[in-house]
């Protein structure tokens, strides 16, 4: 089975596998390092999983869940966990990731990655849910830091402290979303570099890059993590700081809305590769090609 890039080889960024691109990806075989899928789109039968079977012959696959609702106080849904387990058994992905967020309560799925108060109660809930998923999948889960548009007064921990504690309690890994940290630091203040320094470097296995929208809400600028455009210049700069600290992490370009032609997405992945190489030349990580 192929594996995601590590620091001992040239880093090749991956892209999200999106339906409108599927035929072109298989026909043109762009030189991307891996493909990431949204788990929930592949939990039925028919064409979608059949396409994924084709794609996995050519690229390593990363399974990115959006619906497990690890932050749900009512616990996670056993049936959904079973469906994820079956997908993971079938695809044998290199990584399985989910979000530090919630989306399910009272029998409702809210189709959003909703924010949690960073409290001891939330910590116990999320840690128990992660442990249940990891036990069922018999593998380490990567947890992604979310974007947020509101803060809870009852938070007693910072997001970095919360993530560190999840790693300590559950042994999970981390997926560091560079754009989300940038968005949150703009929306609420905060130093993204301190954020990068504060994470346990050996737990970070994947980086996400995406574009964001700039919205005006009653005269206040709020950045929205909409995955609908190219990575901004400021986020590229932050990415260079992130790859310096997390050299073994694989990079993914996310683009979910206003999907561009495939070559635009591939060019973004190549730009990530270029920046990774330039950083590691500067700080002395030889790209042992």
């Amino acid at each position: 089975m192929s594996t995601l890039p590590s620091s001992t080889e040239r880093q090749t960024a991956g892209i999200g596998l999106r339906c409108p691109h599927f035929e072109e990806i298989v026909a043109t075989r762009p030189a991307v390092g891996f493909l990431e899928i949204h788990a929930e789109n592949y939990m039925g039968g028919g064409r979608m999983p059949a396409r994924l079977e084709v794609a996995r012959r050519h690229w390593p696959i990363s399974v990115h869940g959006v619906g497990m609702s690890l932050g749900s106080a009512e616990g996670i849904n056993d049936r959904h966990l079973e469906r994820l387990a079956r997908l993971v058994e079938r695809i044998e992905p290199d990584w399985v990731s989910e979000h530090l967020a919630w989306s399910v309560v009272d029998g409702m799925y809210l189709n959003d990655l909703l924010p949690l108060p960073y409290s001891e109660e939330s910590l116990a809930v999320v840690a128990a849910n992660i442990a249940q998923v990891q036990d069922r999948l018999r593998r380490r889960l990567l947890i992604e830091n979310p974007s947020a548009y509101l803060r809870f007064a009852q938070s007693t921990l910072s997001e970095v402290e919360f993530l560190n504690e999840l790693v300590r309690r559950t042994g999970c890994g981390l997926l560091f979303d560079v754009n989300n940290v940038f968005v949150n630091c703009r929306n609420f203040g905060g130093d993204p570099l301190a954020w990068i320094e504060g994470l346990p470097a050996d737990a970070v296995h994947e980086l996400h890059l995406a574009g964001h929208a700039v919205n005006d809400a009653d005269g206040v600028t709020i950045l929205i993590d909409d995955h609908g455009s190219q990575v901004s210049a400021a986020v590229w700069e932050l990415y260079e700081r992130a790859v310096a600290r997390f050299p073994t992490a694989a990079t993914l370009i996310e683009w979910d809305s206003n999907l561009p032609p495939l070559p635009v997405l591939v060019a973004e992945a190549q730009e990530a590769d270029r920046r990774w190489r330039s950083v590691h030349k500067e700080v002395g990580y030889a790209a042992a090609a």
């Binding site: 189709n111 909703l114 548009y149 509101l150 803060r151 809870f152 009852q154 009653d218 005269g219 709020i222």
Partner: peptide, 21 residues
């Protein structure tokens, strides 16, 4: 008072999620 009243206010911030849903 559990959502911080950062401008433009908790209700407007909550509305971002409601709109997305």
């Amino acid at each position: 008072g559990c959502v911080v009243e950062d401008a433009p206010g908790a209700a407007a911030r909550l509305a971002i999620h409601v709109h997305h849903f």
